[in-house]
């Protein structure tokens, strides 16, 4: 589904990703772990197409398409979703209205029928029930005045509604207390399916107790330096990132 090959990317002239390769198949959950500054969030932003990130080398194929050629909105329509580390507030724009605009824009781009307000409302009600979302949050402006936990839950709710093929969760656990973390994880787990893949970017192993990944990759200095299963995450937790660095020294000239 997603094939990243030898990806190099920089921001403001500084090279962050230095030859990252990764293969993700439908139904899989991949965790990307790594120390601060390793390039974790850069990976998410490059995949979603955030302006300012420049890909200098390598390729990304998504369902056979060259992802890097697509505008951010076309990537979304193709089934890519980025759950933001810091979701943005849009004052005055009703959350439900925003969701409908997003869903219909995607459907239109895919040549599907847009949903009218009745159909959409029905869908929202279903998803609210499924995800245990607070309905009150839907009547407020997008992320405006939301707590950290509410913002993250809103991201997961958007994901549930937009039903992406590949979801990238960028440090969705950051800033959450344990109860909020559990709720968010439960939401993500309920969306796991054989057709859908996840890329879970996280700094801590803690999240992976609740969202158990099929694969864990350690990102250091812009490349994946070690891959394994959920056990790798637990070892990392015990030994720290320095431990990885000792096992697989990064070539100085990389």
């Amino acid at each position: 589904m997603l094939t990243i090959h030898n990806l190099h990317a920089r921001i403001a002239g500084k090279e962050i990703l230095k030859g990252l390769s990764l293969e993700v198949k439908p139904g899989e959950v991949h965790a990307i772990m790594g120390p601060n500054g390793a390039g974790k969030s850069t990976l998410g932003n490059v995949l979603a197409g955030r302006p300012g990130y420049e890909v200098t080398q390598g390729s990304v194929l998504f369902d056979g398409k060259n992802l890097l050629e697509l505008e951010p909105e076309a990537r979304a329509a193709a089934g890519l979703f980025l759950a933001f580390q810091y979701p943005v507030e849009i004052p005055g724009v009703n959350n439900t209205y925003f969701l409908r605009a997003a869903l219909n824009a995607q459907r239109k781009a895919r040549g599907e029928q847009e949903l009218d307000s009745m159909q959409f409302l029905k869908l929202v009600r279903e998803k609210v029930k499924e995800m245990g979302m607070t309905p009150e949050l839907l009547n407020r402006a997008v992320n405006e005045g939301f707590s950290g936990g509410e913002k993250k839950r809103n991201e997961v709710f958007q994901m549930a509604l937009l039903e992406p093929r590949l979801a990238v969760l960028d440090e969705t656990d950051s800033g959450l207390d344990i109860d909020a973390l559990k709720r968010v994880a439960a939401g993500v787990n309920s969306l796991r399916s054989p057709q859908r893949a996840f890329l879970v970017i996280t700094h801590y192993q803690r999240l992976l107790d609740y969202i158990v990944p099929d694969f864990v990759h350690v990102l250091a200095d812009g490349r994946i330096v070690e891959s394994g299963d959920a056990q790798l995450a637990r070892e990392l937790e015990a030994h720290g990132y320095a431990w990885v660095r000792e096992r697989t020294p990064v070539e100085a000239s990389a």
């Binding site: 979603a48 197409g49 955030r50 302006p51 505008e71 951010p72 909105e73 990537r75 979304a76 329509a77 979703f81 980025l82 933001f84 979701p87 943005v88 849009i90 004052p91 005055g92 724009v93 925003f98 605009a101 997003a102 869903l103 824009a105 995607q106 781009a109 402006a141 997008v142 958007q158 937009l162």
Partner: peptide, 20 residues
Amino acid sequence: FYCRSRGISEEDAVSLIVDG
């Protein structure tokens, strides 16, 4: 970028934000 990453085009995103 937030709007666009959800599938909303640039022009529609501006209208949406201005409307808000």
